[in-house]
C-alpha cells in the first residue's frame, strides 16, 4: 500500500510538470499583451525538439547606469507609430505596467545593453517545411524588413512567441496543401 502511494504521488508529480508548463504558456498567450517585433531567420537543428528557425531581433537597448555583463534586469517594450514594438529601456527595478520582460544583460557598451530573452528565439517547425520557411523569410526580409515579423505575448515579465508572419500571413499557411 505504502509503495503504491509513493508510486502514485511520483507519477502525479511527473504528469504535473508538463501540465504546469502548458497552463503557464496558455495563460500568457491568452492574457498577455501582444507585440510585433521585426526579425530575420535561418535554419539550425535541435537534437531534442527537431528543426527550428532561429529568430534574431534587435537586442541592443538603452539601459540604466550600473549594469554589468551577466546582470539580470527588465526590458520595457514600447510601440512605435508603425505598430511595431522595440526594446526601449533596460531597468533594474520591475516596471509598474505589464509591458516588460525579464532579461539577461550579455554586454554593456556606451550606455547600451545587449540583452538576451528566453522563449522568443526559436520557432519550431515541421522538418519538411524548415528549409523552405527559411528561404521564404530570407527572400522577403531582404526586400522589405517590415514584411516579416513575429508576434509575442507578454505577461508579468514572461513572454511566449505567438506566431511568425510573412506579409501579414502566418508563416505556416504558406506551406499548407
Amino acid at each position: 500500500m505504502n509503495k503504491k502511494l509513493i508510486f502514485i504521488s511520483f507519477a502525479l508529480l511527473l504528469v504535473l510538470v508538463p501540465f504546469y508548463i502548458i497552463f503557464n504558456s496558455e495563460s500568457i498567450l491568452e492574457n498577455g499583451h501582444q507585440h510585433k517585433l521585426r526579425l530575420e531567420g535561418y535554419d539550425p537543428f535541435d537534437p531534442f525538439r527537431g528543426k527550428y528557425i532561429r529568430l534574431n531581433y534587435d537586442f541592443d537597448s538603452p539601459c540604466e547606469k550600473g549594469f554589468k555583463d551577466g546582470d539580470e534586469g527588465f526590458v520595457v517594450l514600447e510601440k512605435d507609430a508603425t505598430g511595431f514594438s522595440h526594446f526601449s529601456m533596460v531597468t533594474k527595478q520591475q516596471p509598474k505596467h505589464s509591458d516588460y520582460i525579464k532579461c539577461k544583460v550579455n554586454y554593456v557598451f556606451d550606455d547600451k545593453c545587449v540583452i538576451a530573452i528566453e522563449n522568443i528565439g526559436k520557432y519550431f517547425i515541421n522538418e519538411n517545411k524548415a528549409v523552405d520557411a527559411e528561404k521564404l523569410l530570407t527572400n522577403i526580409a531582404e526586400n522589405d524588413v517590415d514584411k516579416t515579423y513575429a508576434t509575442i505575448r507578454v505577461l508579468d515579465g514572461e513572454c511566449r512567441l505567438e506566431e511568425v508572419y510573412v506579409k501579414d500571413k502566418p508563416l505556416k499557411t504558406f506551406f499548407e496543401k
Partner: peptide
C-alpha cells in the same frame, strides 16, 4: 520520457527556454 514530454511541450509552445532550467527540472524528477 520525462525529458521527452517536457521537450514536446516546449516545442508546441515555441519555448527555446533555458537549457539549464530544463536539466534541473529533469534531474530533480
Amino acid at each position: 520520457m520525462v525529458g521527452a514530454s517536457i521537450a514536446l511541450v516546449s516545442q508546441t509552445y515555441q519555448m527555446d527556454g533555458d537549457f539549464d532550467r530544463f536539466i534541473i527540472v529533469w534531474l530533480s524528477l
